[in-house]
Simulated scan of single mutants.
Amino acid sequence: MGQTIGKEEKKDIGPIVGKCYDKYFADPNKKWNSAEFYHAICETVEELNKMLGSTQFHVPKSSTLEEAYNKHHNGKDKSLTKDEFQKILQDIILDSGVTGMGIKDILLFIFGIPIVTTFIKHKAAPNSIPNDVFIPAVTSASVFLLSRLNKI
C-alpha cells in the first residue's frame, strides 16, 4: 500500500493496517456479511484519520468497496489475507480520495485574510497605515499563525 501517505507526510500506516487486520479479519472462521465488512473498513479508515491528525480520507461508497473486494479477494470460501486487505484499502482510498484540508487553510490564510483585512482597513481607516507595510505585515502574521498551528 505504499506504507506511507503523501510525499510530505511520512507517517507509516503499516502498523495501523496490521492492527485493524488483526482486530477484524484475523479469525479465519468468521463469516462476514457486507454490512460487517463495510463497518470494519470504515473503522480502519477512521483509525487512519486519527493517526494523521484530522480527516484525510473519505469513507468509501459501498459499491466501491464491493468492487475492490471482488477484485482482490481470490478465494471466496476462505478468509481474507493481510495482502488482500491492503490492496482493498489501497483501491478504496484511491477511489474515495483525500480531503486535503491543508491547501484550503493555506489559501484562506495566505490570500484570504490579507485581502479581507485590506478591504476592512480601506473602509475603517484608509490612510492610517500604508498598504506597502500593511499587506506584508498581515500576510506574515497569517504565515506565522499557520506555522504555530502546524498547518505548514
Rank of each mutant, 00 (worst) to 15 (best):
7 K>P: 08
7 K>W: 09
8 E>K: 12
9 E>Y: 06
9 E>C: 14
12 D>L: 09
15 P>K: 13
15 P>Y: 09
16 I>W: 01
16 I>S: 06
17 V>R: 04
19 K>H: 13
21 Y>K: 05
21 Y>E: 02
23 K>F: 09
25 F>I: 04
29 N>A: 11
30 K>H: 15
31 K>R: 15
31 K>P: 01
31 K>F: 06
33 N>V: 08
33 N>W: 04
34 S>A: 09
36 E>W: 02
37 F>C: 01
39 H>M: 06
40 A>Q: 07
41 I>A: 02
42 C>I: 04
43 E>S: 11
44 T>H: 02
46 E>V: 05
47 E>Y: 09
47 E>V: 08
49 N>A: 06
50 K>L: 09
56 Q>C: 07
56 Q>Y: 05
57 F>E: 01
61 K>L: 12
61 K>A: 10
61 K>W: 05
62 S>F: 09
63 S>T: 14
65 L>Q: 01
65 L>F: 05
66 E>Q: 12
66 E>H: 08
67 E>A: 11
67 E>P: 00
68 A>Y: 01
69 Y>F: 10
70 N>V: 05
71 K>F: 02
71 K>L: 08
72 H>N: 14
74 N>H: 13
74 N>Y: 09
74 N>F: 08
77 D>S: 13
78 K>G: 04
81 T>H: 02
82 K>E: 09
83 D>C: 02
83 D>A: 14
85 F>W: 10
85 F>R: 04
85 F>L: 07
86 Q>T: 07
87 K>H: 11
89 L>W: 01
91 D>Q: 10
92 I>K: 00
93 I>S: 01
94 L>M: 15
96 S>Y: 00
99 T>P: 00
100 G>N: 13
101 M>Q: 06
101 M>L: 12
101 M>I: 11
102 G>N: 15
104 K>L: 10
106 I>C: 13
106 I>E: 05
107 L>E: 04
107 L>C: 14
108 L>S: 13
108 L>F: 13
108 L>Q: 11
109 F>V: 07
109 F>I: 03
110 I>R: 05
111 F>N: 12
113 I>Q: 01
115 I>H: 13
116 V>W: 06
119 F>N: 09
120 I>Q: 07
121 K>S: 10
123 K>T: 14
124 A>F: 06
126 P>G: 06
